[in-house]
Protein backbone atom coordinates (compact mmCIF):
# COMPACT_ATOMS: atom_id res chain seq x y z
CA UNK A 1 0.00 0.00 0.00
CA UNK A 2 2.87 2.29 0.92
CA UNK A 3 4.52 1.56 -2.43
CA UNK A 4 1.25 2.36 -4.30
CA UNK A 5 1.06 5.66 -2.40
CA UNK A 6 4.59 6.67 -3.36
CA UNK A 7 3.97 5.77 -7.02
CA UNK A 8 0.86 7.95 -6.95
CA UNK A 9 2.79 10.79 -5.36
CA UNK A 10 5.45 10.52 -8.10
CA UNK A 11 2.71 10.54 -10.76
CA UNK A 12 1.13 13.62 -9.16
CA UNK A 13 4.43 15.49 -9.22
CA UNK A 14 5.10 14.40 -12.82
CA UNK A 15 1.67 15.63 -13.93
CA UNK A 16 2.08 18.89 -12.04
CA UNK A 17 5.46 19.55 -13.69
CA UNK A 18 4.08 18.60 -17.10
CA UNK A 19 1.06 20.90 -16.76
CA UNK A 20 3.31 23.75 -15.66
CA UNK A 21 5.63 23.20 -18.63
CA UNK A 22 2.69 23.12 -21.02
CA UNK A 23 1.07 26.25 -19.57
CA UNK A 24 4.30 28.23 -19.70
CA UNK A 25 5.22 27.36 -23.28
CA UNK A 26 5.97 30.39 -25.43
CA UNK A 27 3.90 29.04 -28.29
CA UNK A 28 0.31 27.88 -28.02
CA UNK A 29 1.00 24.53 -26.47
CA UNK A 30 0.72 21.49 -28.68
CA UNK A 31 -1.88 19.09 -27.43
CA UNK A 32 -0.96 15.52 -26.74
CA UNK A 33 -3.33 13.85 -29.17
CA UNK A 34 -2.51 12.56 -32.64
CA UNK A 35 -5.21 14.64 -34.38
CA UNK A 36 -3.52 17.98 -33.70
CA UNK A 37 -0.25 17.32 -35.51
CA UNK A 38 0.42 19.97 -38.16
CA UNK A 39 -0.46 19.00 -41.75
CA UNK A 40 2.25 16.76 -43.29
CA UNK A 41 2.82 16.30 -47.03
CA UNK A 42 1.65 12.87 -48.17
CA UNK A 43 -0.70 12.44 -45.22
CA UNK A 44 -4.50 12.66 -45.53
CA UNK A 45 -6.27 15.83 -44.44
CA UNK A 46 -8.76 15.33 -41.60
CA UNK A 47 -12.36 15.63 -42.74
CA UNK A 48 -13.40 19.28 -42.72
CA UNK A 49 -17.00 20.40 -42.85
CA UNK A 50 -17.98 23.97 -43.80
CA UNK A 51 -21.25 25.89 -44.03
CA UNK A 52 -22.71 25.79 -47.52
CA UNK A 53 -22.34 29.29 -48.98
CA UNK A 54 -25.45 31.16 -50.04
CA UNK A 55 -24.11 33.07 -53.05
CA UNK A 56 -24.79 31.31 -56.36
CA UNK A 57 -21.47 32.34 -57.95
CA UNK A 58 -19.50 30.86 -55.03
CA UNK A 59 -21.61 27.70 -55.21
CA UNK A 60 -20.95 27.41 -58.92
CA UNK A 61 -17.20 27.97 -58.40
CA UNK A 62 -17.08 25.19 -55.80
CA UNK A 63 -19.33 22.88 -57.84
CA UNK A 64 -21.95 22.92 -55.12
CA UNK A 65 -24.83 24.34 -57.18
CA UNK A 66 -27.14 21.49 -56.23
CA UNK A 67 -26.14 21.27 -52.57
CA UNK A 68 -29.18 21.10 -50.33
CA UNK A 69 -27.75 20.60 -46.85
CA UNK A 70 -26.46 23.39 -44.62
CA UNK A 71 -22.92 22.08 -44.63
CA UNK A 72 -20.58 20.30 -47.01
CA UNK A 73 -17.26 18.50 -46.78
CA UNK A 74 -14.17 19.49 -48.79
CA UNK A 75 -14.38 16.31 -50.89
CA UNK A 76 -17.64 17.59 -52.41
CA UNK A 77 -15.84 20.53 -54.05
CA UNK A 78 -14.93 20.01 -57.72
CA UNK A 79 -11.14 20.28 -58.02
CA UNK A 80 -7.91 18.48 -58.79
CA UNK A 81 -6.02 20.61 -56.30
CA UNK A 82 -7.62 22.60 -53.52
CA UNK A 83 -5.53 25.33 -51.93
CA UNK A 84 -6.69 26.27 -48.45
CA UNK A 85 -5.46 29.45 -46.79
CA UNK A 86 -5.70 29.36 -43.01
CA UNK A 87 -5.89 33.01 -42.01
CA UNK A 88 -7.26 35.43 -39.43
CA UNK A 89 -8.64 38.91 -39.91
CA UNK A 90 -6.52 39.83 -36.89
CA UNK A 91 -3.21 38.54 -38.25
CA UNK A 92 -0.91 41.29 -39.60
CA UNK A 93 0.92 38.99 -42.04
CA UNK A 94 -2.40 37.66 -43.40
CA UNK A 95 -3.39 41.29 -43.98
CA UNK A 96 -0.11 42.05 -45.74
CA UNK A 97 -0.30 38.86 -47.80
CA UNK A 98 -3.91 39.40 -48.92
CA UNK A 99 -3.06 41.30 -52.15
CA UNK A 100 -0.49 38.63 -53.15
CA UNK A 101 -2.97 35.82 -52.49
CA UNK A 102 -5.56 37.72 -54.55
CA UNK A 103 -3.04 37.91 -57.38
CA UNK A 104 -2.56 34.16 -57.23
CA UNK A 105 -6.32 33.62 -57.43
CA UNK A 106 -6.62 35.96 -60.42
CA UNK A 107 -3.76 34.15 -62.20
CA UNK A 108 -5.48 30.80 -61.69
CA UNK A 109 -8.81 32.18 -62.92
CA UNK A 110 -7.16 33.68 -65.99
CA UNK A 111 -5.52 30.39 -66.96
CA UNK A 112 -7.95 28.31 -69.00
CA UNK A 113 -6.12 25.06 -68.33
CA UNK A 114 -5.86 25.55 -64.58
CA UNK A 115 -8.99 27.44 -63.59
CA UNK A 116 -11.14 24.30 -63.41
CA UNK A 117 -8.42 22.21 -61.81
CA UNK A 118 -7.13 24.45 -59.03
CA UNK A 119 -9.63 25.91 -56.57
CA UNK A 120 -8.98 28.14 -53.58
CA UNK A 121 -10.74 28.70 -50.28
CA UNK A 122 -9.83 30.53 -47.07
CA UNK A 123 -10.71 29.58 -43.52
CA UNK A 124 -10.69 32.37 -40.92
CA UNK A 125 -9.64 30.66 -37.69
CA UNK A 126 -11.05 32.17 -34.51
CA UNK A 127 -12.98 34.63 -36.69
CA UNK A 128 -16.73 35.17 -36.66
CA UNK A 129 -18.62 35.35 -39.96
CA UNK A 130 -18.72 39.14 -39.46
CA UNK A 131 -14.94 39.30 -39.03
CA UNK A 132 -14.36 37.14 -42.13
CA UNK A 133 -16.72 39.52 -43.99
CA UNK A 134 -14.62 42.51 -42.86
CA UNK A 135 -11.44 40.86 -44.21
CA UNK A 136 -13.14 39.95 -47.50
CA UNK A 137 -14.42 43.49 -48.01
CA UNK A 138 -11.21 45.21 -46.90
CA UNK A 139 -8.99 43.28 -49.32
CA UNK A 140 -11.54 42.54 -52.06
CA UNK A 141 -11.03 38.78 -51.69
CA UNK A 142 -12.88 37.00 -54.51
CA UNK A 143 -12.37 33.35 -53.52
CA UNK A 144 -14.71 31.82 -50.93
CA UNK A 145 -13.90 32.50 -47.28
CA UNK A 146 -15.34 30.58 -44.36
CA UNK A 147 -15.43 31.24 -40.60
CA UNK A 148 -14.06 28.83 -38.00
CA UNK A 149 -15.26 30.85 -35.03
CA UNK A 150 -14.90 28.13 -32.40
CA UNK A 151 -11.47 27.01 -33.71
CA UNK A 152 -12.80 23.50 -34.36
CA UNK A 153 -11.09 23.25 -37.76
CA UNK A 154 -7.97 24.97 -36.43
CA UNK A 155 -7.61 22.21 -33.83
CA UNK A 156 -8.01 19.52 -36.50
CA UNK A 157 -5.21 21.15 -38.49
CA UNK A 158 -2.73 21.09 -35.64
CA UNK A 159 -3.31 24.69 -34.48
CA UNK A 160 -1.06 26.05 -37.19
CA UNK A 161 0.03 29.68 -37.04
CA UNK A 162 -1.32 32.06 -39.66
CA UNK A 163 -1.16 32.46 -42.57
CA UNK A 164 -0.79 28.79 -43.45
CA UNK A 165 -1.30 27.21 -46.86
CA UNK A 166 -2.39 23.63 -47.39
CA UNK A 167 -3.08 22.04 -50.78
CA UNK A 168 -4.78 18.70 -51.22
CA UNK A 169 -5.36 16.47 -54.24
CA UNK A 170 -8.67 14.98 -55.21
CA UNK A 171 -7.51 12.33 -57.64
CA UNK A 172 -5.62 9.08 -57.98
CA UNK A 173 -3.28 7.81 -55.33
CA UNK A 174 -2.96 11.24 -53.82
CA UNK A 175 -6.71 11.66 -53.27
CA UNK A 176 -7.29 13.69 -50.12
CA UNK A 177 -3.53 13.72 -49.49
CA UNK A 178 -1.66 16.87 -48.59
CA UNK A 179 0.68 18.08 -51.36
CA UNK A 180 1.57 21.53 -50.01
CA UNK A 181 1.97 22.48 -46.33
CA UNK A 182 3.48 25.90 -45.79
CA UNK A 183 3.63 28.44 -42.98
CA UNK A 184 3.85 32.12 -43.90
CA UNK A 185 3.48 33.93 -47.20
CA UNK A 186 3.38 32.32 -50.64
CA UNK A 187 6.22 34.45 -52.02
CA UNK A 188 6.03 35.31 -55.70
CA UNK A 189 2.52 34.25 -56.89
CA UNK A 190 3.88 33.37 -60.35
CA UNK A 191 6.37 30.88 -58.90
CA UNK A 192 3.85 29.53 -56.42
CA UNK A 193 1.38 28.90 -59.23
CA UNK A 194 4.09 27.21 -61.27
CA UNK A 195 4.81 24.77 -58.46
CA UNK A 196 1.08 24.19 -57.98
CA UNK A 197 0.48 23.58 -61.68
CA UNK A 198 3.15 20.88 -61.62
CA UNK A 199 1.03 19.14 -59.01
CA UNK A 200 -2.27 19.82 -60.76
CA UNK A 201 -2.67 16.34 -62.21
CA UNK A 202 -2.03 14.77 -58.80
CA UNK A 203 0.47 12.25 -60.13
Amino acid sequence: MKKVKSVNRALCIAFAILSLTVSCAHQPAASLTESVKPPTIGKPLPQISLSTPEGSSIRTYLGLSNATSESFILGEIEYNILLIEIFSMYCPLCQREAPTVNQLYKKIRADQKLSGKIKMIGIGVGNSAFEVGVFKKKYGVEFPLFADSNLKIHKKLGQVRTPYFIAICNQGEMKNRIVISKLGGIGDPHNFLKSMSELADCR
Binding site: S88, C91, L93, G126, L151, R161, P163, L183
Partner: peptide
Protein backbone atom coordinates in the same frame (compact mmCIF):
# COMPACT_ATOMS: atom_id res chain seq x y z
CA UNK B 1 -5.26 27.51 -26.74
CA UNK B 2 -8.23 29.80 -27.26
CA UNK B 3 -6.53 31.76 -30.01
CA UNK B 4 -4.64 31.36 -33.26
CA UNK B 5 -1.18 32.91 -33.33
CA UNK B 6 -0.01 35.02 -36.25
CA UNK B 7 3.34 34.13 -37.80
CA UNK B 8 4.55 37.73 -37.90
Amino acid sequence: PLWATAKS
